[in-house]
Structures are given as structure tokens and as C-alpha cells.
């Protein structure tokens, strides 16, 4: 996620473009080179257009043959005749697992970012940042393997405890107590662990950029460390933290392997997040791909398109927030 590092870019090198045009003489080398780079840009646009077109065509083919309602049907029976499939369960499962992940990861990530910038002894802060950086690079399949073989058995206790003491909240009620915790809640926890490093990294970068003068001013007024953070650090970093969270959310929504390995999926939509069942878009594609007929594949592509649109919206929102923040801080700098 290094791309989002706020590097306060200098204005692009527009003056340098003077060699180009104006005099009317362009050297062949220049023409080739600018052609190449413009070509790459255009290629990229063509690629995106192709992705949209191919996915849409395939999806339209599948949806037109769907004997259920694509938006409200629970089942995913795309391979039978007549095919009946819908994304209701997938949409719900994707959102619930991501929301759980965000609810856990964001406060902790901000906490760690503050820890690294404000609380940790200097000797600990540097190496810690390094370790978190490295953890952001651990492949998702490794998280999945660890989640399935280590996390699931170790969450059994917590799940039973939640069921026993917080069962009255309905959300934490297990209809069949003692069920192995291969549920949306576990998936959410694993996703939280996975996106923690990303959110931490970006938040840390943002918090670091809080002008020292703001903090010093607060401290000079006799504020405690927490008051300094609450009054001068968090307001400045808020939009950055929000966009960091959105980037994490984007990753959680599209995560495949970690969910495939820990979630016991089924066509079930339930508010009981400790019950096995449910599913997510990405996991559904990976696990149904094997047995899919050609229509089944198109149906999976249709669900992939929905996932694509959702992540697009989330990432777009993150970008808009970042862009707004740039103007804001630019005005203040």
C-alpha cells in the first residue's frame, strides 16, 4: 500500500514539456518514446474497458437465464436445470465479515499507529514499524492456512464464552452450542488480522505528518498526552485514517483464500454470526468454480462483477477522501 504514502508531490514537470511541440520539429526518438508511453496509458484504458465488457457480457448471459431473482435469491444452484442463483447470502456474508473485520481492526490499528508514533520507546518503535511492514506482505494463503489449522481450534473457547454470556444479544447466540467456529465471526477476525498491517501502516504515515507545532502547542497549554492526541493529532489525521480504513475494507471485501479456508459456507442468511453458514463473493467463486458448468461459470462471473463494483465504490470513496484532505492540508501548510 506504499502507493498511498503521502509524499506531498511537487507539481508535475510541466515546464519540461517545452521541447515538445512549439518549435514544430520533433525528433523521431522523441516521437517513438512519447508514442510508447502514451501507448501504455491507452493500453491500460483498453484493458480496463475489456475487463468491464467481458465481465458484463458473461454476466448478462447468466442473469438472463437465471430462474431466481439474482439479487434476492439465497441459493446458488447455477448448475442444475433450471438454474437458480442469487447473491443475497453472498452480499450479506461479504458485508458482515468485512464489518466485523473493520470493527476489530480499525481501533486496534489506530492504537498501534499511536503506539508507534507516541507511546513506544524510540528503540522499539523503529523495528516495530519494520515488522508491521513485513507482515503486510505475508501472502493471504498463509493467513488462510494458519486460520484454518490454528485459529479455528483456538477460537472455540471464545465462541462458547460469547454464546454463554452474550447469547441474549441474538448476534452471539449459537443455535447449536458447541459447533466448531467456522463462521462469519471467525472469518471476520482473520480478515481483521490480515488488514491490520495495511491500516496501521497508512495511519502511521498520516499521524507522522501531523505538524509538530500543533502538538507542541497543545502540550504547551498543559494538555496531557491523551488530550494532545485527541485535540491535535486525531482531528488532523482523521480523514487519512478513514481512507486507510477504506483501503483495508477494499482488501477485506475481495479476500478469497482466507475465507475459503475458515468459513463453513452454505446458502444460509442468519443474524447469528456464530452459526456456521453464509458465504462471501470471492470464496463462493473459488469453491464453486470446480463443479461449474459453462452457465455456472458465467453466473460466478456475474457475482464477480458485483464484487468488482462494490470494491470500486469503496476504493473510489477512499480516493475522494484522500483528495479532499490534500486540499485541506495544502491550505493550512
Amino acid at each position: 500500500m506504499e502507493i498511498t504514502k503521502e509524499t506531498a508531490p511537487p507539481p508535475p514537470a510541466v515546464p519540461a514539456a517545452a521541447a515538445h511541440g512549439r518549435r514544430g520539429v520533433t525528433r523521431p526518438g522523441d516521437r517513438i518514446f512519447s508514442g510508447l508511453s502514451r501507448g501504455s496509458g491507452i493500453l491500460l484504458l483498453v484493458l480496463m474497458a475489456a475487463i468491464a465488457v467481458f465481465l458484463t457480457v458473461r454476466a448478462a448471459n447468466a442473469i438472463s437465464q437465471d430462474h431466481g431473482n439474482f439479487l434476492t435469491t439465497f441459493e446458488w444452484d447455477a448448475n442444475t436445470t433450471p438454474p437458480v442463483f442469487g447473491i443475497a447470502v453472498l452480499l450479506y456474508g461479504t458485508l458482515v465479515s468485512s464489518v466485523i473485520a473493520m470493527a476489530i481492526a480499525v481501533p486496534i490499528a489506530v492504537g498501534i499507529a499511536l503506539f508507534m508514533t507516541h507511546y513506544a520507546p524510540r528503540r522499539l518503535g523503529g523495528p516495530l514499524a519494520y515488522v508491521i511492514d513485513l507482515l503486510a506482505a505475508v501472502p493471504s494463503i498463509v493467513y488462510g492456512l494458519w486460520g484454518a489449522l490454528f485459529l479455528v481450534p483456538h477460537l472455540q473457547g471464545l465462541t462458547s464464552w460469547l454464546d454463554q454470556y452474550l447469547g441474549w444479544t441474538v448476534i452471539f447466540d449459537q443455535s447449536n452450542p458447541g459447533t466448531a467456529p467456522r463462521n462469519l465471526f471467525t472469518a471476520g477476525i482473520l480478515l481483521a488480522i490480515m488488514i491490520l498491517p495495511i491500516i496501521t501502516n497508512v495511519s502511521r504515515e498520516v499521524i507522522r505528518q501531523v505538524p509538530a507545532a500543533h502538538e507542541e502547542a497543545a502540550l504547551a497549554l498543559g494538555a496531557t498526552r491523551w488530550e494532545t492526541i485527541r485535540m491535535s493529532v486525531l482531528p488532523f489525521a482523521r480523514s487519512g485514517i478513514i481512507s486507510a480504513s477504506m483501503l483495508g475494507l477494499g482488501r477485506a471485501l475481495g479476500e478469497t483464500m482466507a475465507v475459503v479456508t475458515v468459513l463453513s459456507s452454505s446458502d444460509k442468511l442468519t443474524a447469528h454470526i456464530l452459526d456456521p453458514g453464509g458465504g462471501t463473493f470471492a470464496a463462493n467463486i473459488a469453491s464453486h468454480f470446480g463443479e461449474a458448468t459453462s452457465l455456472g461459470r458465467d453466473a460466478l462471473i456475474a457475482s464477480g462483477l458485483v464484487l468488482f463494483v462494490i470494491t470500486l465504490l469503496v476504493n473510489g470513496a477512499a480516493r475522494v477522501i484522500i483528495a479532499r484532505r490534500k486540499e485541506y492540508s495544502g491550505a493550512n501548510a
Binding site: 441459493e75 446458488w76 444452484d77 448448475n79 442444475t80 481450534p153 443455535s175 447449536n176 458447541g178 459447533t179 466448531a180 467456522r182 475459503v260 463453513s264 459456507s265 452454505s266 446458502d267 444460509k268 452459526d275 456456521p276 453458514g277 469453491s287 463443479e291
Partner: peptide, 29 residues
């Protein structure tokens, strides 16, 4: 109605024949 996809709701699911066997091996009951 039957078919290759599991239609009943509830219960645990696992991927592949081996996944099912591994799940049963790990879970009492």
C-alpha cells in the same frame, strides 16, 4: 429436489472429500 449442490440449510460444510474427513476427525459429535 437433489442435485450436486447441498440444498439443506444448517450444518457445517467443508471443501472436498478430504476436507470433510478432516473436519469430522477434528470434531467430537
Amino acid at each position: 429436489s437433489g442435485g450436486k449442490a447441498w440444498q439443506a440449510q444448517g450444518g457445517q460444510s467443508a471443501k472436498g472429500s478430504s476436507g470433510v474427513a478432516a473436519g469430522v476427525k477434528q470434531t467430537n459429535g
